[in-house]
Design a protein around this nucleic acid. Structure first.
Length: 564
RNA sequence: GCCCCCGUAGCUCAAUUGGACAGAGCGUUUGGUUGCGGACCAAAAGGUUACAGGUUCGAGUCCUGUCGGGGGUACCA
């Protein structure tokens, strides 16, 4: 666990600028944090900084001249090969080739921890995601949420955070009652009874199926008991079944949660009452129009409803969401002491962002500890037509269907390959057909291909752990592969700081492409005895490449197959 | 009406938060196997970054406006 080359180079350049000032080569001015980036072109070295371009005015000379003077004061570092100024004022740096080749062993030694960076310094972060209502199976939209949240959690772990994955089960809202009534109606109908179906009830086929199952398992018992009590019990039973289904669907997608936090438990543990009392005490709770409201200066337009007889007809039921969201926030940041609480929400919830932030402020918590990731929604296309989705009407494509048709790896890869900000057109026909052309197989193929090479080598009598003289590696394709592997820590750093896991699939494709090019140019297992040393070195190299490919695939929650 | 997101190659998407010549995959065209996996590789074509202004050494990226698509707009969560 260490700092990235990028940040070390940034320090190096800043010290050089300061040294140039101390020596009188540059006038005094505040030296900024130099931006350092991976060069896009090989001509520009491995890293470039544009810092001198910004300093011309203060330094009273041209950017190119600033770059020259800074380079003259650069400390030598073992990993830096050469450094050159470039018009109009860039500083370009090349990594030392001996240092690069030696690092192949460092990758192998690091193993599955390769790429870790200590960005988080052990801070505790909770990523709460999916959290779909347990009133129906997960849809494709939830799949995007799941994939995004899980990869984000993995990336944050790799970046030195202590991460907990959490699913919030909304088991106390009015929707639970509506869901219970819907299932109850289907249950009664399954037993041949007339039962009123709620006006805004859940009409999906799975509700009918739940009613049928309940009838088969319990007979007429619930028809004979108190109706309100029966609906409550049926709702709890149906919700339990849905949570189990959701848990299984997510597991099959490769997503596992550390904690399933139930809204009800916030009431049972008294957290809700304490938080509501705090809000009331601080004057954020007001009552008028026969209802209870949350009011905060940041929400200039109007107050947010907490409780109303219209939405909660039964006094025994709980207030609506903002109050419980505030309680949940308190639970996260205070009761359980997370440094940061990350929420992954569909963009259709963006209107709630200011409210949660306001709730944090009202509770005296730093709103920056609350981070909301919003992802744009998925538009689903099938046979050239848009598929409208709604749990209420029962028209939607479930994650389960998609898992059966496509499999978890392509789903994860496809949904991760986009920024959260971009809406997605998901073409079902293409997703199914695409199996051979999907980039996911391109990356996995590279991994399987290396596995095959290693099997071949062992059949030829080569040992994989033999010490090798890595300085024999010098071919441009070998060097390109090493350089690409060493980018992983920076990819993780970037994905973690920007909370954007979509960099992973792009990097994975680049790494695979770099390996395939190496494979074209460089024979690994040679039958010529004169090449034995080179074979040993390349066996180490491809083992490292296999490891890095597996590492990035695992960060994305995907498998790294030995054979395909 | 007001608020948020998006508009980049024929299609699906990137572009290191303002840096060098805007890049990948798919599709199209052409080429590549006498040894480790051809689910691969190489080359070509494809762009006024929706449009019009502005900010500065420098804009796909920032500011204003226009057009187009999606979402939200508070008693559903």
């Amino acid at each position: 666990m260490h700092r990235t080359l990028r940040s070390q180079i940034a320090d190096l350049i800043r010290r050089a600028l300061e040294a140039a000032q101390a020596a009188g080569d540059l006038p005094p001015f505040p030296v900024p944090d130099p931006p350092v980036e991976r060069s896009r072109q090989p001509d520009h070295g491995d890293y470039s900084s544009s810092v001198c371009l910004k300093l011309a005015r203060e330094a009273r000379t041209t950017p190119l001249e600033i770059a020259r003077r800074a380079i003259a004061h650069l400390d030598p570092l073992p990993f830096i090969g050469r450094v050159e100024p470039a018009a109009p004022g860039y500083i370009n740096l090349w990594l030392d080739e001996g240092w690069l080749t030696a690092h192949v062993e460092a990758i192998l030694t690091a193993g599955e921890t390769f790429g870790r960076v200590d960005l988080g310094r052990g801070r505790r972060v909770q990523v709460e995601f999916v959290s779909a209502n347990p009133t129906g199976p997960l849809t494709l939209g939830s799949a995007r949420n799941a994939v995004l949240g899980d990869a984000l959690a993995s990336v944050l772990e790799a970046a030195g955070h202590e991460v907990e994955r959490e699913y919030y089960v909304n088991d106390a809202g009015s929707q639970v009652r509506v869901f219970g009534e819907s299932v109850f109606a289907r249950y009664a109908q399954a037993l041949g009874e007339e039962a009123p179906f709620p006006e805004d009830g859940y009409r999906g086929g799975y509700v009918t199926e739940l009613g049928r199952q309940l009838a088969a398992e319990t007979g007429r018992r619930y028809l004979e008991m108190d109706r309100r009590e029966a609906v409550r019990t049926v709702a709890a039973w149906a919700m339990y079944r849905m949570v189990e289904t959701i848990r299984q669907d997510l597991a099959d997608l490769g997503v596992h949660f550390d904690t399933w936090r139930h809204e009800r438990s916030l009431y049972e543990e008294g957290i809700f009452d304490r938080v509501l009392a705090m809000l009331r005490e601080k004057g954020y709770i007001v009552e008028y129009d026969d209802a209870v409201w949350f009011r905060h200066p940041d929400l200039e337009k109007d107050a947010v409803l907490i409780r109303s007889p219209q939405v909660i007809p039964e006094p025994s039921e709980r207030p609506t969401y903002l109050a419980s969201d505030a309680a949940y926030l308190w639970d996260k940041l205070v009761e359980r002491g997370f440094d940061r609480a990350i929420y992954v929400w569909g963009a259709d919830h963006h209107g709630d962002v200011p409210r949660v932030k306001a709730a944090a402020k009202a509770l005296g918590l730093d709103p920056d500890r609350v981070v909301l990731i919003l992802y744009q929604l998925i538009t689903l296309w099938r046979s050239g037509e848009e598929v409208r989705m709604s749990k209420r009407t029962g028209e939607f494509v479930t994650l389960r269907e998609l898992l059966d048709e496509v499999g978890p790896d392509p789903i994860r890869f496809m949904l991760l390959s986009r920024t959260a900000d971009a809406p997605v057109d998901f073409d079902l026909d293409l997703a199914v057909e695409q199996s051979d052309r999907n980039p996911v197989y391109y990356v996995q193929y590279a991994h399987a291909r290396i596995a095959s090479i290693l099997r071949h080598a062992q059949n030829q009598g080569w040992g994989l752990d033999e010490p090798a003289d890595l300085s024999l590696l010098h071919h441009p394709s070998e060097m390109a592969l090493i350089r690409k592997m060493l980018e992983l820590p920076e990819v993780i750093e970037q994905a973690a700081t920007r909370l954007s896991p979509h960099f992973l699939p792009f990097y994975a494709q680049e790494l695979a492409a770099t390996f395939h090019a190496f494979y074209r140019d460089c024979r690994v297992v040679s039958s010529d005895p004169a090449d034995a040393g080179l074979t040993r070195a390349r066996l180490r190299l491809v083992q490292a490449a296999k490891l890095v490919l597996a590492r990035v695939l695992h960060l994305m929650g995907m498998t790294a197959p030995e054979r395909m």
